[in-house]
Write a protein that binds this DNA or RNA. Structure first.
Length: 434
RNA sequence: GCGGGCGUAGCUCAGACGGUAAGAGCGUCAGGCUGUGGCCCUGAAGGUCGCGGGUUCGAAUCCCGCCGCUCGCCCCA
């Protein structure tokens, strides 16, 4: 069969059989966030383009070549300059925008929120990389305490560990703040060093050298790697406050027994990051190995017009969590589709079956019946496929005796139950067996 | 944007130096058991062999183009 339409490139349908695992991941995430005192927030799927230009950065790949534009379509809608809408390419800026817009940062000294949302980036799809993927993430805004960095990392650690995605390595770095004697000083030192090797840098990096020199650090080109190996590291140029902050983050993680690796080349591709940056990478994941990434963004709120307010957070790719679970050989959760199936063995019993069907559903029991007028054998097979624990059989015999035959599919036992008591006794059976 | 691999039934895949038949397993449906699931057995439905063109007496098989999927570069979750 040739289907007329397929899901757009880089998108995936999440089918009924997949849902149990998605729910497991999402609910585990919600549970950990709640334990840590984070509240859920939901923001629109599209936002003003300026929001991302301002925060993610004009020179970032996301802004330069990965955004999906949203615009009214059709002859009645000429393209307006003001309507520059973009499908959300990352989670932090929209949340910051919403908190500012509704004054939540005035109502609480510290605002801690989490989100689960689809993210859109126009990229070439490959293993672990989609054009629409889903991220769960947290943002903690209002304190520059290193213990908040520790909390966010610990939350990511607890979530991934308990959801069956363990085996990751936490990469940690500090890229300093914007004070003159911190990142700017490092930036200069880095540029000076790289300039002395400019001829041997790859084409991209020769350009990055002036637009975004830190990005040269995580270039994968071999020639660049060898140069970067001896490049100055940001941790050696931190100002006193940043140095102190970073030491405290490390101490806190040590205290909690959360292992990490210092990685001086970790810089991340979004402009709003300051100080702490981290990535949870998984060795079983292939080329796209980051499952969770984030850091501190002390300048973000101010950039969006708020009072200077520090913050820290992470984003975690749900599809990649699922890939890790698979690599870790975690079993896929499977739910029975219904508890009870009503099988009709004689046309005369159809009315009684109809009433019983709705009586059970309204009593809170997941109940299904046959809509294809199939043989009792076929109905039994179908009941089995649906995972029904009990099958109720209604036929001439049952009508005559005013009973219902109840079959326990697991125990292969069956008995007769008075019609008027069937709902209550099934209720008891279903709650006991689940 | 640039490379590599692959497109045969709903799914997983056989079949390929061009030639006697479009196949298997799973799944679906029906029957064996005319009121009873899982196991087993029998049968059935389901395919323009991604699309278009070319070579040839003859193409799922060879060639070209396109489309799609996939993996990698890049970038990131």
């Amino acid at each position: 069969m040739t289907v007329k339409f397929r899901a757009p490139r880089g998108t995936k349908d999440i089918l009924p059989d997949d849902i149990a695992e998605w729910r497991l991941v999402e609910e585990t995430f919600r549970q950990w966030c709640t334990r840590y005192g984070y509240r859920e927030i939901r923001t629109p799927t599209f936002e003003d383009m300026g929001l991302f230009e301002r925060t993610v950065g004009e020179t970032s790949d996301i802004v330069q070549k990965q955004m999906f534009a949203v615009m009214p379509y059709g002859s009645r809608h000429p393209i307006g300059e003001e309507e520059r809408w973009i499908l959300r390419p990352e989670g932090t800026a929209p949340v910051a925008r919403a908190l500012l817009e509704h004054g939540l940062l005035q109502q609480f000294p510290i605002v801690k929120v989490f989100y689960i949302a689809p993210i859109f980036r126009y990229e070439r799809p490959q293993a672990g990389r989609l054009r629409q993927h889903h991220q769960c993430g947290v943002e903690a805004i209002g304190s520059s305490s290193p213990l908040l960095d520790v909390e966010v990392i610990a939350l990511g650690f607890d979530f991934l560990t308990s959801v069956g995605a363990d085996g990751f390595v936490i990469n940690l770095n500090s890229i300093g703040c914007l004070n003159e004697n911190c990142r700017p000083r490092y930036r200069q030192a880095l540029i000076a060093y790289l300039q002395s090797h400019e001829q041997r840098l790859c084409e991209d990096c020769q350009r990055r050298l002036y637009t975004n020199p830190l990005r040269v650090l995580d270039c994968k080109e071999e020639s660049c790697q060898t140069i970067v190996k001896d490049a100055p590291m940001s941790v050696d140029f931190l100002c006193d406050e940043c140095r102190e902050h970073f030491d405290a983050v490390r101490k806190g993680l040590d205290e909690l027994g959360i292992a990490y690796e210092l990685n001086g080349r970790l810089v991340r591709g979004l402009d709003y990051y300051t100080r702490t940056v981290f990535e949870f990478v998984h060795p079983k994941l292939g080329a796209q190995s980051t499952v969770l990434g984030g850091g501190r963004y002390d300048g973000l709120i101010e950039e969006l017009g708020g009072n200077p307010t520090p913050g820290v957070g992470f984003g975690c790719g749900i599809e990649r969590v699922l890939l890790v679970r698979e690599a870790n050989a975690q079993p896929k959760p499977k739910d029975a589709i219904v508890d009870v199936f009503i099988a009709v063995a004689a046309d005369a019993a159809k009315d009684a079956a109809l009433k019983l069907l709705y009586e059970l559903r309204r009593a809170g029991i997941r109940t299904e019946c046959d809509y294809l007028d199939r043989s009792l054998k076929a109905q039994m097979r179908y009941a089995d496929k649906l995972g029904a624990r009990f099958v109720l059989i209604l036929g001439d015999e049952e009508l005559r005796e005013n009973v219902v035959t109840v079959r326990d599919m697991q125990k292969s036992e069956q008995w007769k139950e008075p019609s008027d008591k069937i709902a209550s006794s099934l209720m008891a059976l279903v709650t006991n067996s689940s």
